[in-house]
Simulated scan of single mutants.
Amino acid sequence: MTIAFERNGMQFDFRASGIAIHCGHVLLVRIERYPFWFLPGGHVEIGELADAAMIREMREETGLDIKIDRIVWVVENFFTLDGKRHQELGFYYLVTPPSGAPQLDLSKEFYGTEENGTPLIFRWHRLDALADLNIFPSFLRAGLTALPASISHLVQNDLP
């Protein structure tokens, strides 16, 4: 059971995300019906450690057996999606994908699915081209190009 619920008209989600960087590119994902990109990952389940959730989600969605290097950010993210207000607590991990994996081909998109069957589109994006990319949370445009040396706590508030 995932740690996600609604209270007083606001959705709360506990999410773990992976920052996979390869040859000057970062792996991002998009759901076809949305025009924005985000880091791969997913909900943490009750009783599950966030780093274990990150490993599980990456395996389920991408087929990659990643190695976690370190936690980079803890983010309190407030946003609206499909007219619903969200509060997300996110743990962002720097991860290393296995060398030689076919998903490391920078020239090709690859595809996965959410547990509920929602199709996912994965693409490697150049780190030096993120400034103009529709990516959320928006701090990632600059943040991914200069990862902090130690864990950092951020609050991202995109609520109207």
Rank of each mutant, 00 (worst) to 15 (best):
A20M: 05
W73T: 06
L104Y: 09
T113P: 07
A131S: 14
F79S: 08
R141H: 12
R85Q: 14
L28Q: 08
C23G: 02
V44G: 00
L130M: 13
S99I: 03
G42K: 02
G47I: 03
I21F: 01
L159G: 00
H43Q: 13
N8E: 12
I3M: 15
F12S: 09
G90E: 13
F5G: 15
W124E: 06
L127Q: 04
N116I: 07
H22V: 05
I66K: 02
E45M: 14
A16W: 10
H153T: 11
V29M: 15
L120A: 05
I19A: 07
L89H: 10
P98V: 01
N134M: 04
I46K: 13
E88I: 00
N8V: 00
A53H: 12
P102C: 03
F5D: 15
V72Y: 02
N8Y: 07
H43V: 14
L28S: 07
L104C: 08
N77G: 00
A4G: 12
A149T: 08
Y93G: 03
E109M: 14
E114N: 10
D105L: 02
L81W: 04
L64P: 09
I21H: 01
S99E: 13
A131L: 14
I68G: 10
P35H: 06
S138C: 04
L27C: 10
R123C: 01
M10H: 11
V72D: 05
F14W: 14
P102S: 05
P102E: 05
L106I: 08
Q11N: 11
L120H: 06
F36S: 04
T80N: 11
T145G: 12
E76M: 00
D65Q: 09
L144S: 03
S152L: 11
F5K: 09
V72R: 00
G100E: 03
S107F: 07
W73P: 11
I31R: 11
E57Y: 04
Q156A: 09
F5L: 12
Y93Q: 01
H25N: 12
F14Y: 14
A4R: 15
L49A: 15
L28D: 07
D82C: 04
V26D: 00
H86M: 00
G100D: 01
E45T: 07
A142Q: 06
L28K: 03
H25G: 14
F110I: 00
D158A: 06
G24P: 02
E88A: 06
R59I: 11
F79E: 08
Q103D: 08
E114W: 03
G47N: 13
H25K: 03
R141N: 15
S107A: 08
Q156L: 04
H125N: 06
S17M: 06
P35Q: 11
D69G: 10
E61Y: 07
Y111N: 13
G100W: 07
G47W: 05
A52C: 15
S99A: 13
I55R: 13
G112D: 03
F5C: 12
W124N: 02
E6F: 06
E76K: 10
E115A: 10
W124Q: 01
I31E: 13
V72A: 03
G100F: 06
M54N: 06
N157T: 00
S150D: 10
P119D: 06
R33N: 14
L27H: 07
E57R: 11
A52K: 12
L104F: 01
L154F: 12
Q103Y: 04
N116M: 12
A131E: 11
A50L: 08
W124D: 04
G100H: 05
N8F: 09
L28N: 09
K84A: 10
H153V: 02
E114Y: 12
H22T: 04
